[in-house]
């Protein structure tokens, strides 16, 4: 059954890709939920994560000296830490002064931050593609019938899903998570209930970039090469995923990301490789036409 195996191939590919989109989408959706701001620089933070991982694993050669599991674990911790620091600084410098002003001013400030970061990355690491070492992870491929499943694909998917599960628990089971959800629903009311919204915003700007940075590292490990403007396309797609799931909705971002990854992989397998991005955006538009607030977000009456 070669057809079925091809389907499984695309399915597993789509799930892994989708889990990466979902990780990035979470950063968009959490920031949007609390601040009603599209963080256009989020894609660049993701790229920053990829490049920091590249520096640690390839330039510093952690992969060779420590052995794969320890090296990747250590670089994940460092990348996550550094990128969330960058996220915090971004909020402090580019967004906090604009908190009370017009939405469009904040959008342009976000675009400015995005242009700044993208060019900073280019100046620091160069405009050419950078390759992660192929020997980073053992090149194991599982053969199940005629269906090939590379180990790295499984690991990336498992890592992304584990992080998302942890986030889900954090958001739904802890007081801080409750504060995030409250601030996302109604900042003013949350303030009245004693939620420190400022703290929530900082928290969101630490968690979001942390997930984005992790996604960057995973993309580097999974695809083996990175580019300074990768943040733009991934960011756009992840944001699409967040919208599809209903922006501001954390579960929605995960579902939207996975859905988008599947859609892309199946579209590329069964319809056309060159049209896959167009298909993605077309589906986005159709979803918004029929469900203007995304798939998971409840319809709410327009506030007057």
């Amino acid at each position: 059954m070669p057809d079925f195996e091809f389907f499984l191939q695309q399915l597993s590919n789509g799930l892994t890709r989708g889990s990466i989109y979902a990780l990035i989408a979470l950063g968009y959706t959490m920031v949007y939920g609390v601040m009603k701001l599209i963080n256009f620089a989020h894609g660049e933070l993701f790229a920053l994560g990829a490049y920091l991982g590249y520096t640690l694993l390839v330039v510093f050669g952690l992969g060779g000296s420590l052995g794969p599991p320890l090296a990747i674990g250590l670089s994940i911790i460092m990348v996550v830490g550094l990128v969330s620091l960058a996220g915090y600084l971004l909020e402090r410098v580019a967004y906090r002064p604009l908190r009370s002003s017009d939405r469009l001013a904040a959008v342009v400030s976000a675009l400015g931050a995005s242009i700044f970061l993208q060019n900073a990355i280019m100046l620091q690491w160069g405009a050419q593609y950078r390759a992660f070492g192929a020997d980073l992870l053992p090149n194991v491929v599982f053969h199940i019938g005629g269906f090939n499943l590379p180990l790295v694909r499984v690991l990336v998917f498992v890592a992304a899903v584990a992080v998302m599960a942890a986030l889900h628990v954090f958001v739904h089971r802890t007081r801080l998570g409750l504060a995030i959800r409250a601030a996302a629903i109604d900042q003013g009311a949350a303030k009245l209930m004693g939620v420190d919204v400022q703290k929530v915003i900082i928290l969101v700007f630490i968690i979001g970039p942390a997930l984005g940075g992790l996604a960057g590292l995973l993309v580097g490990v999974y695809y083996g090469q990175i580019n300074f403007n990768m943040g733009q396309l991934y960011g756009l797609k992840a944001f699409t995923a967040a919208i599809v799931g209903g922006i501001g909705n954390i579960t929605g971002a995960m579902v939207g990301g996975l859905l988008l990854g599947l859609l892309e992989a199946l579209g590329e397998g069964y319809i056309s490789v060159i049209w896959k991005d167009a298909i993605t955006f077309l589906v986005l538009i159709l979803i918004l036409v029929f469900r203007p607030t995304g798939l998971l977000k409840e319809r709410v009456a327009e506030k007057l």
Partner: peptide
């Protein structure tokens, strides 16, 4: 040269902070 866009991005942020309209 290529530092132009870097400056441009930073300038945008600063402009929006001081003149949001």
């Amino acid at each position: 040269e290529n530092k132009r866009l870097l400056v441009f991005g930073a300038a945008l942020v600063i402009m929006m902070i001081f003149r949001p309209g």
